[in-house]
Amino acid sequence: MISFLGTPRIETGRLILEKFTLHDAQNAFDRWLSDERVSDNRVSAAHRILSQTEERVNGIVSQYANENFCYWAIKLKHSGELIGEIDLYDFDESTGNCEVSYSLGFQWWNHGYGTEALKEVLAFAFRKMNVHKVAAAHNTDNPASGRVMSKAGMVREGVIRHMIRNAKNQYKDCAVYGILQEEYVYKGERLKDEFQRGYMADSCL
């Protein structure tokens, strides 16, 4: 059974994941929601005017009262700068499964921030919420997102043809990834064992 805990503040080495506020709308608009380089990998079109983003952020903020709403703003720890978003959604209480999605502003691509945020959200889902499986998908013409999923421990399960149609009326094939709670636990223990073996070997030098 899933234990819903809402959207708590999460810290990583370089990031803070926390709730959006109404004051975040301008930065979200400027940094990714109005950028077609980002929206080309999303179902929804790039925002043309700030009021679109304000309406979207208002909708997010209004749902934080619900314990089953898990939606984080991604911010740099050293500056507090808003750089993206990540959320858990589509919870199925009959299976314990859900999905995850994320977006980062173009300026912060290829710096490992997506992987860092995704790893912590997966940890939260499995350790705190008792989720059974987390799934995700990306357009096959956006392999960088697949690398983020792989680095976070997710496994590619296949490709669904014409899974989505974007705002430009283009059908997109999507690669589907997933990770089970038992896989997450196993991989975590394996990495811990490898670290301990490496530490012991180094201490003997």
Rank of each mutant, 00 (worst) to 15 (best):
H23P: 01
H23C: 10
A25F: 07
A28F: 08
A28I: 04
A28P: 05
F29G: 02
D30Q: 02
R31Y: 09
W32Y: 13
L33R: 00
L33A: 07
S34Q: 08
S34I: 11
D35C: 09
D35R: 11
D35F: 12
E36H: 11
R37N: 09
R37Y: 09
V38T: 11
V38Q: 08
V38D: 08
V38G: 05
N41E: 08
N41W: 11
N41P: 04
R42V: 06
R42N: 11
R42L: 12
V43H: 05
V43T: 08
V43I: 12
V43S: 01
S44P: 01
S44L: 14
S44I: 12
A45L: 05
A46F: 03
A46S: 08
H47D: 06
R48M: 06
R48P: 02
I49A: 10
I49P: 00
I49T: 09
L50F: 05
L50G: 04
S51I: 13
S51C: 10
S51P: 03
Q52R: 01
Q52I: 02
T53L: 02
E54I: 12
E55Y: 09
E55Q: 12
E55R: 12
E55P: 00
E55F: 09
R56H: 14
R56M: 15
R56E: 13
V57I: 06
G59D: 03
G59H: 06
G59M: 00
I60T: 01
S62L: 09
S62D: 15
Q63M: 10
Y64D: 04
Y64K: 03
Y64V: 04
E67H: 10
E67N: 12
E67Y: 03
E67G: 06
F69H: 01
F69R: 03
F69L: 07
C70R: 00
C70D: 07
Y71K: 07
Y71A: 04
Y71N: 01
A73I: 07
I74Q: 00
I74K: 03
K75H: 02
K75P: 01
K77Q: 11
K77V: 10
K77C: 08
H78I: 15
H78W: 11
H78S: 15
S79T: 15
G80N: 09
G80E: 08
G80W: 05
E81D: 15
L82K: 07
L82D: 06
L82Q: 05
E85F: 05
I86E: 02
I86H: 07
D87L: 02
D87F: 05
L88Q: 06
Y89L: 10
Y89S: 11
Y89R: 13
Y89T: 10
D90F: 10
D92Y: 10
D92A: 06
D92K: 14
D92C: 13
E93F: 12
S94V: 14
S94Y: 11
G96A: 07
N97W: 14
N97D: 15
